[in-house]
Amino acid sequence: MKTLKLFLSLFLVSTLATMSAQNNVTIKTTKLSDNVYMLVGQGGNIGVSVGDDGMFVIDDQFAQLTPKILDAIKALSDKPIQFVVNTHFHGDHTGGNANMKKAGAKIIAHDNVYKRLLEGNKTDGLPVITFNDKLSVYINGEQVLVFHVDNAHTDGDAMLYFTKSNVLHTGDNYFHKRYPYIDVNSGGSIDGYIDAVKMALMVIDENTKIIPGHGELSNKAEYASFLEMLTKLRANVQAEIDKGKTENDVVANTAITKEYDDLNYSWNFITSEKIRRAIYISLSTMD
Results as ranks from 00 to 15, higher is better:
Asp59Met: 07
Tyr114Met: 06
Gly96Met: 03
Met100Tyr: 15
Gly120Leu: 04
Ala72Pro: 02
Thr123His: 01
Leu117Lys: 05
Ala63Asp: 12
Thr87Gln: 07
Val85Phe: 03
Asp78Tyr: 04
Thr87Ile: 10
Val85Leu: 10
Leu70Thr: 11
His90Arg: 15
Gly104Met: 08
Asn121Lys: 13
Phe83Ile: 10
His90Leu: 14
Gly104Tyr: 04
Arg116Pro: 01
Val84Tyr: 08
Val50Leu: 05
Asp59Ala: 09
Lys68Ser: 11
Lys122Gln: 12
Asn99Ser: 14
Val57Tyr: 02
Val50Pro: 01
Ser77Ile: 01
Leu65Cys: 10
Thr87Asp: 06
Gly47Arg: 01
Phe62Arg: 12
Asp52Phe: 09
Met55Gly: 05
Ala109Leu: 00
Ile69Lys: 13
His88Gly: 13
His110Ile: 10
Leu76Trp: 04
Asp124Val: 02
Val50Ser: 08
Phe62Gln: 10
Ser77Asp: 03
Asp59Cys: 14
Ala109Met: 00
Thr66Gln: 14
Asn97Lys: 02
Lys74Asn: 15
Gly104Arg: 03
Asp59Lys: 06
Gly104Lys: 04
Gln64Trp: 10
Asn99His: 11
Asp92Pro: 04
Met100Gln: 06
Lys79Asn: 14
Gln61Pro: 08
Asp124Ser: 09
Asp59Tyr: 02
Lys79Arg: 15
Gly104Ala: 10
Ala103Glu: 11
His88Leu: 11
Phe83Gln: 08
Met55Asn: 11
Ile69Tyr: 09
Asn86Leu: 14
Ile81Lys: 03
Lys74Val: 15
Lys115Arg: 08
Gly47His: 04
Asp60Ile: 07
Pro67Lys: 07
Leu76Met: 09
Val84Ile: 15
Ala98Met: 03
Ser77His: 04
Gln64Pro: 10
His88Glu: 14
Gln82Met: 15
Thr94Ser: 05
Val113Ile: 12
Gly51Ala: 11
Ala63Leu: 11
Asp111Trp: 04
Glu119Asn: 15
Ala63Val: 10
Ile58Val: 15
Lys68Val: 11
Gln82Arg: 15
Lys101Asp: 09
Gln82Ile: 15
Pro67Asp: 05
Ile73Asn: 02
Leu126Gln: 01
Thr66Leu: 13
Val57Cys: 03
Phe62Asn: 06
Asp92Glu: 12
Lys68Trp: 03
Tyr114Thr: 09
Asp53Gln: 06
Gly91Trp: 04
Lys79Gln: 15
Asp124Cys: 04
Phe56Val: 13
Gly91Ala: 12
His110Cys: 08
Val84Trp: 03
Gly54Gln: 02
Arg116Leu: 07
Leu118Val: 14
Phe89Tyr: 15
Ala98Tyr: 00
Lys101Leu: 06
